[in-house]
Design a protein around this nucleic acid. Structure first.
Lengths: 149, 149
DNA sequence: ATAATTAAAGATATTTTTATCCTTAATTAA
DNA sequence: TTAATTAAGGATAAAAATATCTTTAATTAT
C-alpha cells in the first residue's frame, strides 16, 4: 500500500515506541536489524522522522541513538504518513485525476468516498502507542519484510 | 493509491467501455488524449491489457485500434488490478511484512483486516461497465491527471 | 584535550518506474 | 501489389525510489 520508505518509517517508530525512551536510546544498528530494513537507507528515513521533534528524537555520541517520548507515542499513525508525504496515497483520486471532487467526480469517486473515511479513521485513530502495545501483546515481530517485487 | 501505470490502465479501460465496441475501435491517439496519458507509455500499457483478450482487444491497420466487447465490460475493476499486478497494494501487509498473517499478525493487522474486505469488495464488486455508466450519468471526464509529485 | 561513538549530511550508485523513439508486423484500401 | 495506417515489439532515455558509502559534526568517556 505504501512505499518502502513509509513501511520502514512505520516499523521504526513502532519499534522505538515499544523499546525506547529518553533514558534508553536505540542505535541505528539495532533498529535496522530489529525491523529488517537496510541500515543506511534507514538512517536517511530517521533523518526525516527526526525533523519532527515531537515524533522521534535523536542524540549523537556514545549512548546516543533514537528514541520516542511520551508525547511522541500519543501521535497518530497518520502523522507519520504526513511526515513521509504519503497521506496522498489515501486522500487522492483512485484514478489519479487531480480535478476529481464531489462536484466533478470520477467514475470511482462515489464508491471510494465510502471507504476513504474508514481508511483515514484507521490511521488517524490509531496512536503509535496503541500499535506498540499490540506488538507486546501479540508477540509480533517487525522484521523479515517481503521481497522486492 | 496505485501506480501511474495502473491509473492509466483503469482510465483507458473505462474510456473504452464507454466509447468502443467491436465495430468502433479507438486509436491510441484518441485514447491517450481522452484519458490524459502519455501516448507512447499508454501504448505499452495497452499491450499489457490486450494480453487478456477478455479484457481489451486490438487490431492493427486502418480502422484498427482498441476495443472492449460485452464480455469485457462484465469484468471487475479488480481483474484490471490483477493484470497490472497491483492487487498486492490492497492484499499485502500495510507494514510490508511478508510473514504477516492471522497467526503472526503485525501491529496493524487486526485493524486493516476490518477494512481490507471492503476495499476488495469495492474493486471486485464493480464492473467496468458500471463505471462506464457512471461516467455517462455524471458527465465526468477522465483526463487532466494530477501533476507528478 | 584526546579518542571513541554515534547520528547528520553529502555524494554516489543501483534499481524501478515512467516515458520516448524507432523499427517491424498486421491490416486495409486503392 | 502498393501505399497507407495502426498496434506490437524492442531499444533507449529520463526520472524517481531505493540503497550504499564517505566525511563531518556532536557527544561522551578517558
Amino acid at each position: 500500500m505504501f512505499s518502502k520508505s513509509t513501511e520502514y518509517a512505520l516499523r521504526a517508530i513502532i519499534y522505538l515506541a515499544q523499546n525506547s525512551d529518553p533514558d534508553h536510546k536505540i542505535g541505528l544498528e539495532e533498529l535496522s536489524k530489529a525491523i529488517g530494513s537496510p541500515r543506511s537507507f534507514t538512517a536517511k528515513i530517521m533523518q526525516k522522522l527526526t525533523k519532527d521533534q515531537n515524533l522521534v528524537s535523536s542524540v549523537t555520541g556514545p549512548g546516543g541513538g533514537f528514541y520516542t517520548n511520551q508525547e511522541s507515542k500519543t501521535r497518530s499513525v497518520f502523522s507519520v504518513l504526513e511526515l513521509m508525504g504519503e497521506e496522498t496515497t489515501i486522500t487522492q483520486c483512485v484514478l489519479g485525476l487531480d480535478q476529481c471532487s464531489d462536484q466533478n467526480p470520477c467514475p470511482l469517486h462515489s464508491t471510494y468516498k465510502q471507504i476513504k473515511p474508514r481508511l483515514l479513521e484507521m490511521f488517524q485513530g490509531k496512536s503509535i502507542q496503541q500499535l506498540a502495545k499490540e506488538l507486546k501483546n501479540e508477540k509480533t515481530v517487525l522484521n523479515r519484510p517481503r521481497k522486492a517485487s
